[in-house]
Design a protein around this nucleic acid. Structure first.
Length: 685
DNA sequence: TCTTTAACGTA
DNA sequence: CGTACGTTAAAGAA
């Protein structure tokens, strides 16, 4: 075991030669400048001052700081990353790969991101408030896998010597630690420790996956071993690196216009509202509720949360102690003070018991019908909507973009229990899906995102992905046959038509989709009744009819629930594990279907990326929104690119009875010369 | 200053 | 018992 400090060119070349002898390495970068959220900061000036590697036994710290090798030699490390058969372990691979990209280094080796494969092996930790360290962090993994812990001397040194940038973080306003000002000997120990932990953690994760595959075979039923889905995630990481670096272009001219438009709406409404109310904060449900109550409106309250109930218990206990003390108190003064404290406790208990006021959009809409004279109600919804569009979307996009107007959102492969992606900085998976009217020049949030020049955006989405996967895996043959024969063109529309027959209620396809999935995943009659505006009995009648058509589904769900009860976990069709407590067994079907669907889409993305590369296309993947992939397709490449996407997506699902279908949409170049996400239309092949 | 909650958007 | 996410700002706790 030796730690090597590489501080001159001769050593650099020797170390590179040595590292190239190894099949497996771990790597890490130490950076200066802002760092944190979503691996976004390399695009905002964060750069490496050291690049570190570990082999099975040794560590190599390449110092490119001011007291080390000149940074123009960084690219000499490229040859380490050239061998496609070499495996390189990272923690947060997307961050390091991006940092290396800015030094002209491209990783052609196999990238293994520790957190991503850890979730395959031990998918138990979400973002639980009781987990002090994030499951995804090296601290947590080193602790869990019992390898060398992180060295905290550096953080301590920074704090003691007040080594922070003059400027604060552009996103969260926090202090920026200056790691490059930490003495070399400290950084050297720290960096070497990190790559050592990274190497050992990743090695151990793979060992654990193989061990569990071998020893718990009966837990998996007929699903593949977990190592297969781990390999998938490993291939996916490289795809995501490419996607992250290239990003998605923003239509900044449009955004500025949109901000002006929404601000105008907001300003006018706020003026009117403040005349009515004398000035309250619309973002405060409490203030809104109190104003409404002052006008004689009955505002509903929410049932106390679990937290509120535990707080209630806490205060009850305190209250009893205070009362007890009060009776024992010797002086009147003491008695009075304790009595007041007890009264305060009672107040607390009451506020927790009553629950908070509900002032969401739906509730306000209901109140609007009840109190048609209150202008305030409609105005508040509109004003909040405009404010949110500005604050959460348009202005945030402008803040997050890089200097070339590119958004590099986090598409996180490891963040969810089911295996889906999550998206952040910005979250591009929850942008408003607004109807586009071709004849109008509208302001739509999705119009903010456009294709590169010479490209158009194409969207390929799985038709009814989750429902088809569910019916297929459950072996629901009667419905599958109807879908195959064309008798049911669309399961959700069929659901809507059954509803019309039974309860004479007409709903949109979107509502039918939410309802069908909701019912399948265990929605109760009371909630269903609410969404239908019918009685619980009527809702139950429809629910029974729905499940009469799906006799196999309940059996399938029960099988999964039993797996939870026996083993405390389920494996989806790809072998991915999801742990559930016994009380959560009703979530098993959702976990299975959502997870299987997610792995289908992930598999497809790997194949699309590979297909484009092999065909030498410049078109590229841009985004994944669960059951939909978005691509930047170069004009002229459509005839090659579209079949690649279609084939990849369809073949990603090894179906039992019914294959998945893929629909295409695209955005034509508009009058302003751009192809925007908000203006997509059907694509006829 | 940090944590929790409500609201709101998507699949 | 639909579930799975991320972001924002207010309110409460420390």
């Amino acid at each position: 075991m030796a730690k090597n400090l590489i501080n001159n060119l001769k050593d650099l070349r020797e170390a590179v030669h040595e590292l190239k002898q190894h099949e497996r390495l771990s790597s890490d970068t130490e950076t200066y400048g802002p760092s944190g959220v979503g691996g976004l900061y390399p695009f905002h000036g964060s750069r490496a001052f050291s690049i570190i590697f570990a082999t099975k036994t040794d560590e190599f710290y390449f110092n490119f700081n001011k007291d080390g090798i000149h940074k123009r030699h960084k690219h000499e490390l490229q040859t380490i990353f050239d061998d496609p058969n070499r495996v390189i372990f990272f923690i947060n691979a997307l961050f390091d790969a991006t940092i290396l990209h800015f030094d002209g280094i491209e990783i052609k080796s196999r990238i293994v991101d520790g957190p991503s494969i850890a979730r395959i092996e031990y998918n138990k930790h979400g973002k639980n408030p009781w987990d002090k360290e994030s499951f995804l962090s090296l601290e947590y993994l080193a602790n869990y896998y019992e390898v060398q812990q992180k060295i905290d001397a550096v953080k301590k040194y920074i704090k003691e010597n007040n080594l922070y940038d003059e400027k604060r973080d552009i996103f969260n306003g926090k202090l920026i630690p200056l790691y490059n000002k930490v003495p070399l000997d400290l950084m050297f120990e720290y960096g070497c420790g990190d790559v050592r932990s990274t190497f050992d953690v990743c090695t151990k994760i793979i060992k654990c996956i193989n061990f569990k595959d071998k020893n718990y075979e009966e837990h998996r039923g007929d699903t593949p071993p977990m190592i297969e889905i781990a390999k998938n995630e490993i291939l996916l990481t490289s795809v995501l690196v490419d996607m992250k670096i290239k990003g998605i272009r923003l239509w900044t001219d449009y955004i500025q216009k949109a901000i002006a438009h929404e601000s105008k709406i907001s300003k006018a409404l706020h003026t009117e509202i403040s005349l009515l109310t004398g000035g309250i904060n619309l973002n405060s449900g409490k203030q809104v509720a109190e104003y409404l109550i002052s006008k004689g409106v009955e505002v509903p309250r929410k049932a106390p949360t679990d937290h509120a109930i535990s707080m209630m218990d806490k205060w009850l206990e305190k209250h009893d102690i205070l009362v007890d003390q009060m009776y024992r108190a010797k002086t009147d003064r003491q008695k009075l003070s304790l009595k007041n404290k007890a009264l305060q406790a009672e107040e607390k208990i009451n506020t927790y018991r009553q629950g908070n006021y509900i002032t969401d959009k739906k509730t306000l809409a209901k109140l609007m019908q009840k109190y048609p004279n209150l202008d305030f109600l409609s105005k508040i919804t509109k004003a909040k909507e405009a404010d949110k569009k500005i604050g959460t979307y348009y202005e945030n996009f402008m803040l997050l973009k890089d200097e070339k107007n590119i958004i590099h959102c986090g598409l996180n492969q490891e963040a969810t229990k089911t295996g889906r992606f999550s998206s952040n900085s910005p979250n591009l998976q929850n942008l408003h899906k607004e109807e586009w009217d071709k004849s109008k020049d509208q302001f739509l949030i999705r119009k903010s995102f456009i294709a590169d020049e010479g490209y158009r955006l194409f969207f390929a989405d799985y038709s009814q992905q989750e429902m088809i996967v569910m019916l297929d895996q459950a072996g629901e043959m009667s419905v599958i046959e109807k879908l195959l024969s064309g008798e049911y063109k669309d399961f959700y529309l069929a659901t809507a038509s059954v509803l019309k027959d039974i309860l004479n209620v007409e709903i949109s396809r979107k509502e039918a989709k939410a309802m069908a999935l909701g019912l399948a995943y265990g929605q109760g009659k009371n909630l269903l009744a609410k969404s239908l505006n019918k009685t619980p009995d009527e809702a139950a009648e429809f629910k029974a009819a729905f499940f009469n058509a799906l006799p196999k589904l309940k059996k399938f769900a029960r099988k999964l629930e039993n797996q939870v009860k026996w083993y405390g976990k389920i494996h989806n069709a790809f072998g991915r594990v999801m742990y559930l407590d016994k009380e959560e067994s009703y979530k098993a079907l959702n976990g299975y279907v959502q997870g299987t669907s997610a792995d289908i889409t992930k598999t497809a993305m790997i194949a699309i990326h590979k297909g484009f590369k092999e065909a030498n296309l410049e078109s590229r993947l841009a985004l994944c929104i669960h059951d939909e992939t978005a691509c930047n397709i170069k004009i002229g490449e459509e005839d090659k690119a579209i079949p690649i996407i279609r084939k990849a997506m369809i073949e990603a699902y090894p179906y039992k009875h019914i294959p998945l279908k893929v629909d295409f949409e695209f955005s034509e170049i508009n009058d302003y010369g751009v192809s925007s996400w908000g203006e997509k239309q059907e694509y006829e092949l």
